[in-house]
């Protein structure tokens, strides 16, 4: 279970957080249909660093920079 440093609350257990999606699967309102469908259904799943969106129980949305192999979190920024 990950220990995630919430910028507002400090390090907290993963169970306090909810994973939303990877940053590259965010569909913007003005994205073209093809781009939106690609973001939703055909994403790369590469080894290496990943940017993910999580939310914390405190109500804050977060951007995590996380290693796909080691799970190491290198950055947590409020969104």
């Amino acid at each position: 279970m990950l220990l995630i440093p919430c910028p507002h609350c400090g390090p907290r257990n993963q169970e306090e957080f909810a994973y939303e999606r990877t940053l590259d699967s965010v569909v913007r309102l003005d994205d073209a249909p093809d781009a939106a469908v690609t973001a939703l259904y055909t994403r790369a799943n590469l080894r290496g660093t990943d940017h993910e969106i999580w939310s914390h129980l405190c109500g804050q949305w977060l951007r995590l920079t996380r290693d796909r192999m080691s799970h190491a979190i290198s950055a947590v920024e409020p969104l």
């Binding site: 569909v27 309102l29 994205d31």
Partner: peptide, 11 residues
């Protein structure tokens, strides 16, 4: 359009 899901509906 301009709402969430509008792109999906064009599939």
């Amino acid at each position: 359009g301009g709402f969430i899901g509008w792109q999906g509906l064009t599939r």
